[in-house]
Amino acid sequence: MSDSKNSTCDEQAFDQFFKSHAKLLRSYLYYKFGDLDQAEDIVQDSFIKLWNNCTKVPLDKAKSYVYTIATNLGISIARHQQVKFKHQNYITQRKSDVTNESPEFVMLEKEYMEKLKNAIADLPDRQREVFLLSRIDKKTYREIAELSNVSVKAIEKLMHKALVTLRKKIGNI
């Protein structure tokens, strides 16, 4: 690769690439395999692999390269240990700007949020992955579809299903 600007071997290009993709990859792996610490480890390993093979991977192929490596790593780990989706300490509630609610309402909210998080953790893997990428990472259906190489329609279906499943799980609170 003589053109260093287009090469992942270029220090600056690599840093830039990492900063723009690491966070989403981390979320993606976490939603997919259920363990945030493990997801961060996989992110590290995948990018190190990219660096070591930078001569073979041009920048425009780097994203799919890293996602493939990371997904394969996650699958091989998941094959050895069945991880239940962990949300404690990982998924938090955004600080509400409005705090003039009554204590009962805050209690109810807290209870409701707990229930919602549990329901999300119990979602089928693909539904949870799509739902959280959309809600937490604010990704569009198109962006989500590109990550796992499926159609936008498939993502829309999964999103719809995820909501229906959550609605059933949570009941009438």
Binding site: K19, Q44, M113, K117
Partner: peptide, 20 residues
């Protein structure tokens, strides 16, 4: 309510520079 709750969720922050 589900949507309001879901949109209030946040993922633990990621320190990109430290990771890099």
């Amino acid at each position: 309510k589900i949507m309001a709750g879901a949109d209030a969720l946040n993922l633990k922050a990621y320190d990109v520079d430290t990771a890099l």
